[in-house]
Structure formats: structure tokens, C-alpha cells
Simulated scan of single mutants.
Amino acid sequence: MSVARQTRQREVIVQVLQGAEGPLSAPELLARAQATLPGLGSATVYRTLKLMQEQGEAHAVHLDGEPLYESTGRGHHHHFSCNSCGRVFSLDSCPVALPTGTVYPGGFVVEGHEVTLYGRCPACVAAG
């Protein structure tokens, strides 16, 4: 495999992650990337995701099932998981005003938080 081909594969994977409306599973990422590079294989996607995580370019989001991946640099945000279609979306606003350093009763000091909202996405609501 040539370096140029590997670079193109990684470029497509990065573009798919950055253009996604929310975090993607590795199979979802593969399917979307294959629209541009039909010969792309799952092993390449997993290797690239691992490398991107090691380099701080992507991170895993853990919900109820398999890990989902998104590019870093999106700032503080949360997720919405559709109970009907299973898609996960990134939410730009934070529904919880919980600053770092908040101390909860018992001495728990908040260093960060993650929120996932569950329900139906607009497309599923419109479909009935």
C-alpha cells in the first residue's frame, strides 16, 4: 500500500468524522467513507481511529452500546440519542449549568460532565 493511498484514506475518514451530525460507530464511518473510497476496508478504519485517538484528533463516546467516534475540537457539547432510528446527534447547547469546581454534598468536586438526552429525532417525529 502506498503512502499516498493511506493519506487519502485517512483524509476521507477525517472528513466523514468532521462532517457528521454526531458521533459515528466504526461501521457507520466505514459505510460513509466507502461512498468516496469504495475499496476502503474496516481494518483501515479501526487503525485510523486508533491513531486519531492517540494523536488527540478523535475520541470515543460511550453510550449504551458500541463506542461511537467523533473528531475533537468541537468544544463542550452533549448528545441526543434517538430511540426510534438509533442515530446520535451532537447538541450545541448545554442543558446543565454545572461549572467545573462545583462541590456537591459529601465533598464531590465536579471536573466535567457528559449528558445524553434520549427521545425521538425530528425526522422520526415527523414520520409519526
Rank of each mutant, 00 (worst) to 15 (best):
S2E: 07
V3E: 05
A4R: 10
A4H: 08
R5A: 09
T7H: 09
I13A: 03
V14S: 00
V14F: 01
V14T: 01
V16I: 12
V16S: 03
L17S: 05
Q18L: 13
E21L: 11
G22K: 03
L24M: 12
S25Q: 10
A26F: 12
P27C: 09
P27E: 05
L30D: 10
A33L: 14
A33K: 13
A33R: 10
P38F: 15
L40H: 07
G41A: 10
S42H: 15
T44K: 04
T44C: 09
V45N: 07
Y46K: 14
Y46I: 07
L49H: 14
K50C: 01
E54M: 13
Q55F: 03
A60H: 10
V61T: 11
H62S: 13
D64C: 08
G65Q: 15
L68V: 04
E70T: 06
E70W: 15
S71P: 05
T72G: 10
G73W: 01
G73H: 04
H76F: 05
H76N: 04
H79Y: 10
N83S: 11
N83H: 12
C85A: 06
G86R: 00
V88Q: 06
V88I: 11
F89R: 10
S90G: 15
D92G: 07
S93F: 09
V96T: 10
L98V: 05
L98N: 02
T100S: 12
G101D: 01
Y104T: 07
P105G: 05
F108E: 02
F108Y: 13
V109N: 08
G112C: 00
H113A: 06
E114M: 06
T116C: 12
T116I: 11
P122T: 15
P122R: 15
V125M: 13
A126F: 13
A127M: 08
A127R: 11
G128E: 02
G128W: 04
